[in-house]
Design a protein around this nucleic acid. Structure first.
Ligand SMILES: Nc1nc2c(ncn2[C@H]2C[C@H](O)[C@@H](COP(=O)(O)OP(=O)(O)OP(=O)(O)O)O2)c(=O)[nH]1
Ligand SMILES: [Mg+2]
Ligand SMILES: [Mg+2]
Ligand SMILES: [Zn+2]
Length: 1165
DNA sequence: CAGTCGTATTTGTTATC
DNA sequence: ATGACGATAACAAATACGACTG
């Protein structure tokens, strides 16, 4: 391509200020300064801009502007020369300009023909070239950087060649799996793996304190050149590199795209193409940016689930994301119809909405093995869509392959906006299958598509059909396909994301000019049809609105508040209510509260208590609406008779239940003590900088009804179950890799296995439903504005419809009610039914109840029967080894500490190597450590930090997957936050809100109360809920036998399966129950319930389901049939209940059928 | 009567709160 | 034995059985 050497832009297109703005130069430019002429000197490194007009050009700003221009354009020198001024450097111009005359035809006259667009494009091109060069130079400079030891100049050997110990080798590779561990000696052990894509190798490095700084250059993803010894590592039992010399090195095998004008990829799959694509979207856009590709289309098979992360990545890297799909086009909706691949791109907002509707239709109405799309639907929603003919499975390629006539193919092609051609090797399987005779035939097919496109005036675009990013990533897809049982292909199609140059070379058989058109020009033409700045999910927040929800909530809250706190309300209560209502209503949460209230009320009316959960308990409004049992006010006394109110705000008591009992000074009534002292902002943040949900724990038995009720209240068309995306995760990925290697008889080091596993993880496998999240669409909006919809796992039998996107992707825009299932409320209902006591009658300062969190005194059993010295077996959230160990160490005395332990025991990095150490080392007492997320926010605010920052930092700490940045750390230091506090924050990976800890502590305490005072009922309820992990054979075993069983299970340690671990946990409780005098009655065909343990003569009767092998169906069938009439024989029961041979066998083996004859001759006649 | 398909049960794995 | 976040639901696969089909 020729370079301009002298340009005279048209006057209206050549403002200097305009140029500066385009180049991002912020400096002042005198207005109306017009570039008269641009002289480009040979080597293109030096320009002279001849300008006229504008303010006088002072030397000072001119020099500075020249520098900026040079930097922005990537030139060594730019001169701004006023017109009429004498040439500053006449010799240079005179000497060099004639030389350029040879390579360019341009002159002042020719320059007039160049439009500003072209002119700017040229400038941009030069700027980019310069940038590339600078980047290359920077890389070159960096690559020489020695991290440790000496520079390594030798050529490395490839990692696959390393099979034995070696004195000294030189290798190179990309760092992954980086781990840093502090040794007791004070040294740091740095371990990481490197890969050069032929194989991988572990590297082990001991760092002295003084080396740490240098070693910080070793990061995930950096390329290193290393020299050292390969040794057999005793710990890992594998070869391992002990490097002496390490230096940064340029990555090997990196593909560059040096084309002056870049192609646009219009056919690319991500990991959302189920069990097929292995490219990571973020990496795709990073690569696109590195190659300076301006846009990339995301076209997964039938789904658009990559859009949200694609959008984020595209934005981050300044690349345009084209939102598309590779759909399955059918002409009729019947199951036999042949489907054709088709690329559908959204050109604008309407198109995107149409695309979401099409995706929904294809999943809900036309799904048959694949989400198929009838042509009629596509035609109906055609507006805003750009259609491409896709790959060899598209109808155009098929038609051409079948040798259909021009007229026929052109008729088909009329449906599309552009035609696609792909590299020959994408289709070379046709050759292998004998469907075409030669490579030339394949070329002819592509040529024919090009000709048809040209005749019809439609763009013809060369696309990759990328399923992975780089050629070397093919191994991931190979394993993925092998894992599904596909036969391995000899020469798999090279489905990687191609550079412009690779594509130009591939299509060179079309001729240079045509190749350039299909690769560059037409791909850009199609990209230009697509609007910039499309967003997969709109900005903004769309809360549902029920009529008068704000007024209703406000009235309800005030009414209930007055019932408890009297009229007028105490100031503290009134202020809190006012503040909350303003925020809740102001931020659009009133309707959500109202619905939550109605749901709770309905459940309670139906006899099912509802448990509190989540951050919503931080709000007094929730408490007063009945959504939460947690009262977030400061600890206080309240007389429910005369409303005498007294708040304790001096910090002497943590939570209300810990206040000493007291009678009302006015009327002598025992006062209620309440208030868990929780800030409202944990729910909504400050000024609405957070979108929370409302969480509710319904009984599992009631959850489905609660979902139905929500649909009724909002209207089914406005309620959608949040969808989830099931991916190939660690274990399955590992299984695939193992299987692949085993089948091929290959042996790989764990470093290489790790690399392969990492390449596979995250690939979409299936879709599912959120545990309880219902997304509420406001009236008057369409779900397609936000997300497509589908059935979970595409099960058309399901009566649940989920969002296509996972909740996280629409979390900022739409509200969610989390209607979860939990055993707490089921326990509560069972216990209320059995004991006749409701939870509000349970005193929160019962010493015997509190005692089980500290020891065994109130249970009166020995530690060996209680799994240790703490009495919380069977108490939710406090019953694991880990938490009991924590209780043993902390011995909580009161409710506040119970809540603290609840917080500390849930999340990684909170207790071990954190709070525990701080307490042990005497740095702070337990109550001063970080116990819940609210603590962090309040502490930072007390230190003087602005509330918004305090809240933001808290959110970073509390959420899985985020931590505080170096800048935040700096900010904390600025407010005298102690070092230990900062370090503690950095170790926290997840943390409860106090409201949740309080709600769960309450629930646990209520159950503990039953465990202490109503053991038979407690165990009845507990085992009913854990019947799955109960083995009916235990009923007749002695405590010693059960202990032996438990020991056997415990000895399995890590080798125990999930099921076995569950069984072991229940077994511990069984042993404890026995020790407390509980006796079990065996399963009985007539007396046993289906799934509940029931008290019978002071003992517990096992349910049918507790027999292993008797499932729910069988148990229910038995229950039903026995009510009709007694069973007369084994044959009778088998027949009437429809039991399988297996069920009969397990029942017989258990002894249930002993009194029954085998057959029943009597009734035969 | 061999093969296919649907149902029941258990188990492993993943996602989410 | 170690070190350990806990609870819940849903999907897929494995297995076994039994009914249906050609
Ligand atoms: N043990 C444990 N409990 C969790 C975890 N994630 C969530 N929970 C519990 C505690 C949360 O308060 C509760 C509700 O979860 P949410 O995702 O709705 O978060 P939360 O309500 O705390 O904050 P939010 O205001 O909704 O952002 O569920 C977890 O990883 N481990
Ligand atoms: Mg929540
Ligand atoms: Mg939630
Ligand atoms: Zn009183």
């Amino acid at each position: 391509m020729s370079l301009i050497c002298t340009v005279t832009p048209a006057p209206e297109e050549a403002g200097l200020a305009q140029l500066c703005r385009k180049l991002g130069i912020k400096e002042m430019v005198p207005p109306e300064t017009v570039i008269n002429k641009v002289i480009v000197y040979p080597g293109r490194n030096s320009w002279s801009l001849e300008v006229t007009g504008g303010a006088p050009i002072y030397a000072a700003w001119r020099l500075s502007l020249e520098k900026s221009l040079a930097a922005a354009l990537g030139l060594t020198k730019v001169e701004i020369v006023p017109e009429a001024a004498p040439e500053e450097n006449p010799e240079k111009a005179a000497a060099e300009v004639p030389e350029m005359g040879n390579e360019t035809e341009t002159s002042t006259a020719a320059g007039d023909d160049i439009s500003e667009e072209e002119y700017m494009a040229q400038l941009e091109k030069l700027r980019q070239e310069r940038e590339n060069q600078l980047a290359a130079e920077a890389l070159a400079a960096r690559e020489t950087k020695v991290i440790m030891g000496q520079a390594v100049k030798e050529e490395p050997v490839s990692l696959e060649q390393i099979a034995d110990e070696e004195r000294s080798v030189v290798v190179t590779g990309r760092v992954f799996n980086l781990n840093r561990r502090e040794m007791r000696s004070g040294r740091t052990l740095l371990t990481f793996d490197i890969t050069d894509h032929t194989d991988s190798l572990s590297v082990k490095l001991f760092l002295e304190k003084e080396d740490e700084e240098k070693a910080s250059a070793i990061k995930e993803g950096t390329w290193l050149m290393l020299r050292g010894a390969v040794q057999h590592d005793n710990f890992t039992q594998e070869l391992c590199l002990m490097p002496r010399d390490i230096m940064l090195s340029p990555p090997r095998g990196v593909r560059l795209d040096n084309a002056a004008q870049k192609r646009v990829e219009l056919h690319l799959h991500t990991k959302m193409s189920a069990l097929d694509g292995v490219s990571d979207v973020a990496a795709v856009f990073a690569q696109a940016a590195a190659w300076k590709h301006e846009a990339v289309a995301i076209t997964d098979h039938g789904v658009v689930q990559a859009f949200p992360s694609a959008y984020k990545a595209a934005k981050k890297h300044g690349v345009k994301c084209i939102f598309g799909v590779e759909g399955y086009l059918v002409d009729q909706a019947d199951e036999k119809a042949e489907s054709h691949h088709i690329i559908i791109l959204a050109a604008d907002q309407t198109g995107l909405r149409h695309l979401y509707e099409l995706i929904s239709l294809s999943h809900l109405r036309y799904f048959y093995r694949k989400p198929r799309l009838p042509r009629a639907e596509l035609t109906r929603l055609r507006q805003g869509l750009v259609l491409g003919s896709a790959c060899e499975a598209g109808e155009i390629y098929k038609a051409v392959l079948a040798g259909r006539s021009d007229a026929e193919v052109e008729a088909l092609a009329a449906f599309y906006d552009y035609l696609e051609i792909q590299p020959l090797s994408n289709n070379s399987f046709l050759l292998e299958q004998g469907r075409v005779a030669s490579l030339d035939d394949l070329r002819r097919l592509n040529r024919r598509i090009v000709e048809i496109g040209r005749r019809l005036g439609k763009p013809v675009v060369a696309t990759s059909d990328a399923h992975y990013l780089h050629p070397e990533d093919e191994i991931f897809r190979r394993i993925l396909l092998a894992g599904q049982g596909y036969a391995e292909v000899e020469n798999p199609a090279p489905l990687y994301y191609k550079t412009t140059e690779e594509m130009l070379a591939e299509f060179s058989y079309l001729g240079e000019e045509e190749a350039w058109r299909v690769v560059v020009e037409d791909s850009r033409r199609v990209a230009a049809m697509i609007a910039d700045d499309l967003m997969p999910v709109p900005k903004g927040f769309y809360p549902p609105e029920l009529p008068d929800a704000d007024k209703i909530i406000s009235a309800m809250v005030h009414k209930r508040a007055r019932e408890i706190y009297g009229d007028p309300l105490p100031q503290l209560v009134a202020e809190r209510i006012d503040k909350e209502l303003a925020a809740i209503i102001g931020h659009g949460f009133a309707s959500l509260y109202l619905i939550a209230h109605k749901l709770v009320k309905q459940s309670v009316d139906d006899g099912y208590a509802v448990g509190s959960r989540g951050s919503v308990g931080s709000t007094i409004v929730a408490f007063l609406c009945g959504i939460s049992e947690v009262n977030p006010l400061a600890p206080h006394y309240i007389c429910l008779r005369c409303h005498k109110f007294e708040a304790i705000t001096d910090g002497s008591v943590g939570v209300g239940p810990d206040l000493p009992r007291r009678d009302c000074p006015n009327c002598g009534t025992p006062m209620k003590r309440d208030g868990f002292d929780i800030p409202f902002e944990t729910f909504l943040g400050f000024a609405g900088d957070k979108v929370p949900d409302i969480d509710l724990n319904f009984s599992e038995e009631y959850q489905l009804r609660a979902h139905k009720n929500t649909e009724e209240l909002f209207g089914a068309e406005n309620v959608f179950r949040a969808g989830t995306i099931g991916t190939l995760a660690e274990k399955t990925a590992y299984g695939y890799v193992r299987k692949y290697l085993d089948e091929k008889g290959l042996h790989r080091r764990s470093a290489e296995i790790n690399r392969l596993v990492a390449g596979l993880t995250g690939v979409r496998k299936t879709t599912g439903q959120h545990p309880g999240g219902l997304i509420i669409l406001p009236k008057g909006r369409e779900i397609y504005e936000f997300t497509p919809i589908q059935y979970p796992a595409n099960d058309r039998e399901s009566n649940i419809i989920t969002t296509h996107f996972s909740f996280d992707d629409i979390h900022e825009q739409l509200l969610k009610l989390d209607i979860l299932g939990q055993s707490g409320p089921t326990m509560q209902k069972m216990l209320e039914d059995l004991t006749g006591i409701t939870v509000d009658q349970i005193p929160l300062d019962d010493p015997d109840t509190m005692a089980i969190f500290r020891g065994l005194e109130s249970l009166g059993i020995a530690p060996e029967d209680a799994g240790g010295p703490i009495g919380t077996l069977g108490i939710p959230e406090y019953n694991t080894r880990y938490v009991r160990q924590m209780l043993e160490e902390t011995r909580p005395k009161n409710f506040a500490e119970l809540i603290g332990i609840m917080g500390l025991s849930h999340g990684k990095g909170l207790w071990l190597d954190n709070a525990q150490e701080l307490v042990r080392q005497g740095i702070v007492p337990l109550e001063k450590t970080i116990l819940c997320r609210d603590d962090i926010m309040l502490f930072l605010i007390r230190q003087g930090m602005p509330a918004k920052d305090a809240f933001r930092i808290t959110e970073l700490v509390r959420k899985t997957g985020s931590t505080i940045s170096a800048a935040d750390e700096e900010l904390m230091l600025q407010y005298q936050v102690p070092r230990w506090y900062i370090e503690s924050c950095k170790k926290i990976t997840y943390m409860f809100p106090k409201a949740h800890a309080a709600a769960y502590a309450l629930n646990a305490y209520w159950q503990a109360y039953a465990k202490v005072h109503y053991p038979l009922f407690f165990y009845a309820a507990y085992f009913s809920i854990h019947a799955e992990e109960f083995d009916a054979s235990w009923a007749t075993m002695s405590k010693q036998e059960l202990h032996a069983k438990l020991r056997a299970l415990n000895e399995k340690g890590n080798a125990a399966t999930g099921k076995e671990q569950g069984i072991a946990a229940t077994l511990e409780v069984v042993i404890e129950a026995l020790a407390r005098g509980i006796r079990f009655l065996p399963v009985d065909l007539y007396k046993s319930q289906v799934r509940r343990f029931v008290p019978e003569d002071g003992k517990l009767r096992l349910p049918l389901i507790s027999v292993q092998g008797v499932g729910l169906k069988a148990a229910e069938a038995i229950e039903q049939s026995r009510e009709e009439r007694p069973f007369t024989s084994v044959e009778d029961i088998k027949k009437r209940c429809g039991l399988s041979k297996t069920v009969i066998e397990v029942l017989a083996a258990y002894g249930c059928l002993e009194h029954l004859p085998e057959t029943n001759q009597l009734t035969l006649f």
